[in-house]
Design a binder for these strands. Structure first.
Lengths: 211, 211
DNA sequence: ATTAAAAACAGGGATTTTCCTGTTTTTCGG
DNA sequence: CCGAAAAACAGGAAAATCCCTGTTTTTAAT
């Protein structure tokens, strides 16, 4: 019996190419394709035969990978998901891990490894050797750079990734400049930086803020 | 006669998938694949029958897109190149345009459009409707945000995208702090910013500095 | 050798940021 | 109502950055 596959990626060329490649695997067939999480869920709702496995990107518009995987895991517990991403930063990996992914591959893997991952996830429910397997324990026990930011800190951080002065940011947040100083100090500590530029760069690196 | 195609991309999965997809086009055949510009040039040197068209990413390790296209254009003037990229910022587009690309597509195009682009580039030497066609005149007449930075300014900018103080940067560059001030002022003007954080963010946005 | 341009450097003041320690107000749980 | 914790705010000094104008040195062309 062929393993049925769903694929979700916002890059159409990659999506179609990958589908084409997977269709060339004797033991696999692609049953659905989507350009984002929302479209994927819509397609799943309309399918009579659900895929066994879904290959899904992390960053997609409309509904991103973690949100989609979370919903798929809840609604279709028999579907396994394999993350396909360009990035392996802890934030991305943790997001997909927490959402319920069975494996996490980078987009620079060889097709043979993708095939192997599909096969192993189908047979055993997980795939050893991928990003997720290598980092699961470290990530879950919090050694990861996963930090907790309050909503206000996140808002401040987003505004701080700009040309604004702290005075201007305080005005935009309807807070005192001294409160802004406090947020900055807190973030300096959490991100282990010592300047605003360093903080902004670190935020971008960790995908806390998108440019 | 089939159009022979070469493909270069650092993401192996995309590379193989795309090759597989293009091999399914009746009028095309893939004759070489490479994971970077250097490997591509090496492969071309060994081929008896050169490809008509090369699909090439902009950002690759070892040798990037612009450098590779420049060399291909010089050594193999009969080979046309089509850029395939995730980004369409002016810097990336100009780099490929100046290097000699015949077309510039984003990776989110539909395979049909890729096919059309290949066909048109083969038949006419260019492809209307892509990023390059839409921006050629604007870019070349310099309305683009393409700015000229001296080697020293680039070096400074790279160092400034960090947690270092200007004093520390001056020490690393064996220059006076006042000279560093001068570079900063110059870059503030060129990038139209008014703070170091703004400068760093703008540099990243324009791919002047890679995180 | 001369001259012009580019690059490096400077003075100095204003503004902003960083750092440290502390107080007050608001919120929340018992 | 009370007390603790969280959030907001504060003083103030030092350091860093920004802004403006200008000089000196080096490089390059003639």
């Amino acid at each position: 019996m062929k393993i049925s596959i769903g694929v979700a990626d916002d890059q159409q060329l990659f999506l179609r190419s990958l589908s084409s490649l997977i269709s060339s695997f004797p033991e696999c067939e692609v049953v659905t394709e989507a350009l984002n999480g929302q479209e994927l869920l819509k397609n799943l709702a309309a399918l009579e035969v659900l895929p066994d496995i879904i290959l899904i990107d992390v960053q997609m518009p409309v509904m991103d990978g973690p949100a989609a995987v979370k919903e798929i895991t809840a609604k279709y517990p028999d579907i396994a998901t394999i993350a396909l991403s360009m990035k392996e930063d802890d934030h991305s990996v943790l997001g997909m891990l927490r959402a319920g992914c069975s494996a996490y591959l980078l987009k620079d893997v060889h097709p043979r490894e993708l095939k192997e991952a599909i096969t192993e996830v189908k047979a055993h429910g997980y795939y050893n050797g991928d990003v997720l397997a290598r980092n699961r324990r470290r990530l879950l026990r919090g050694e990861a750079d996963e930090i907790k930011l309050t909503d206000r800190e996140k808002h401040f951080l987003k505004l701080a990734c700009s040309d604004y002065t702290y005075k201007e940011i305080a005005a935009k947040m309807y807070l005192s400049e001294k409160t802004i100083d406090g947020y900055r100090d807190s973030l300096f500590q959490k991100l282990n930086v010592r300047s605003r530029t360093g903080m902004a760069l670190e935020a971008i690196k960790r995908n806390l803020v998108v440019l």
